[in-house]
Design a protein around this nucleic acid. Structure first.
Lengths: 153, 153
DNA sequence: TCTTGTAGGTCCGAAAACTGGACCAACCTT
DNA sequence: AAGGTTGGTCCAGTTTTCGGACCTACAAGA
């Protein structure tokens, strides 16, 4: 076999995880989605060490997922806001919540966090971008079953 | 303010990340989705240190996301397969791919990895579970805007 | 037979990341 | 003046990660 596929696969999933895959990153984003934009709140509600969360907010800001906004001048105070890219993490967070709701809930059922404006829970659906058809993993083709043919386009 | 909300929020997202939030976990799952079920393949195509990946596959197996199956007796050989819970990570992975495709693609566009059987790319849609209506972050209610009222149900 | 290859790991020491807790500088309220 | 709020930083100890070498068991080819 002459041409080896690139060792670490060129992949958007890997790239995404490079940015939001660190331990506390998505929990920070979750808090901001929930409206808690301030450092102390984020630290308190995620349970992260202050130090670690400070570093994480820095990397997320540098990556363009968050913005840092001064909301008070004289005691200089900052809050974190979601960029467009940050807001577009909503499906990722929803999918994770859904999975946790299904497989990691205790006896009292899943905790409720995000709801649709009609009051019900949001979920993610897989659809085909082109034909609009609902899809499942079963109807998805694994483009690279044997480890070949996957090259970036 | 008498009753403090629980410090670290009770949350399915946090629980999910406890299981699949480690650095190489979702990439291992990705490889298995792509049909590469064997240790060496998984290591090679993710780029993870062998050591770390061995540990990760162990935790994922213990968590019930993966199963470990012997496919050869005499040289005892094992492969990893997705459980139902593992297969249900498909939306998470799709959402991450979609985000990476959108915000982290180079000049040559996103690498293609998963496609629908019709040959097109899959994506995730947010919908309301009850009314079936398409939803966006904008139409979602933040159940806990000020850090209150979020308690598990 | 001897070598090479495959497969699924383990072991190692060095480096990086995470952790909890103390501390700090401005400002404000009581 | 004392105490609270906010957004951090600093520290030292522990845990994880990293890359590479190594190991066992078998099979195929020269």
């Amino acid at each position: 076999m002459a041409s080896k596929t690139p060792e670490p696969r060129v992949c958007s999933i890997a790239r995404s995880l490079e940015v939001v895959g660190e331990k506390w990153a998505l929990l920070a984003v979750r808090e901001i989605f929930l409206g808690n934009r301030r450092f102390d709140e984020i630290v308190r509600r995620t349970g992260a060490p202050r130090d670690t969360m400070a570093a994480r907010l820095r990397t997320l800001t540098e990556a363009g997922v968050l913005g840092r906004r001064q909301y008070s001048e004289h005691p200089a105070r900052y809050e974190y806001v979601l960029s467009t890219a940050g807001r577009d993490l909503y499906p990722v967070i929803t999918a994770l919540r859904e999975w946790g709701d299904r497989y990691l809930s205790g006896e009292q059922g899943p905790p409720v966090t995000f709801t649709h404006s009609c009051g019900h829970t949001l979920s993610t659906r897989l659809v085909c971008e082109a034909c609009g058809e609902a899809a499942t993993y079963a109807s998805a083709t694994r483009a690279d079953p044997e480890g070949e043919g996957l090259r970036g386009r």
